[in-house]
């Protein structure tokens, strides 16, 4: 084996080790900031929870060309920090979920935000919620759980990523 080939293999291996180490680091997070210290969480909504996003149903999040919409997602509650929720499994409406939360607010829904960039299954998120999406949002709702008749559907005001 030539010196050049050995150097290439060694370099490639080192790069792989660095990437895997970074990926496996417990602090690895696709969002920014420290969610628990985000003062915006306490400022918004009447409820604050840390919850795991159980699933993203097929077609629940997509970039809609013409119109705004909210989608309903299912969460497993890990901890309730403020207020109370009904049960361990909750349903939460997110406005224009294909956008990073920091860019999602607009004239129709001005007061939402957070550091979460992309919704992914199994993510743990810390959210400020309002008690009823139907009271807060009058636009188009995409509810893949309609047949299950979830009640209430909470409304996500601030969404920070904790892990995942």
């Amino acid at each position: 084996m030539t010196f050049r080939v050995s150097r290439t293999i060694l370099g490639g291996s080192l790069l792989a080790v660095v990437l895997i180490s970074a990926a496996c680091s417990p602090s690895a997070s696709m969002g920014g900031g420290t969610p628990s210290s985000d003062p915006e969480l306490a400022r918004h909504g009447t409820i604050e929870v840390t919850a795991k996003l159980v699933e993203i149903p097929e077609g629940a999040i997509f970039e809609r060309e013409l119109y705004n919409y909210a989608t309903v997602l299912k969460y497993q509650v890990i901890e309730v920090h403020r207020g109370s929720v009904r049960g361990q499994t909750i349903y939460v409406g997110h406005y224009n979920p294909f956008k990073p939360r920091a860019d999602a607010a607009d004239q129709l829904v001005p007061n939402i935000g957070g550091d979460l960039k992309t919704f992914r299954e199994d993510q743990v998120e810390r959210m400020s919620l309002d008690g009823s999406m139907l009271d807060e949002f009058s636009g188009a709702i995409l509810n893949k759980y309609f047949e299950e008749d979830p009640d209430p559907i909470y409304w996500a005001v601030w969404t920070d990523l904790v892990s995942g």
Partner: peptide, 27 residues
């Protein structure tokens, strides 16, 4: 520079399923 974790690491953080790869590509 923005103090964020590079998005490319997401490829290593999740199982390489079709759905995850599609979501990564979309993002």
């Amino acid at each position: 520079r923005r103090g964020e974790t590079p998005g490319a690491l997401e490829l290593f953080l999740r199982p390489p399923t079709a759905r995850n790869l599609h979501a990564y590509e979309h993002g």
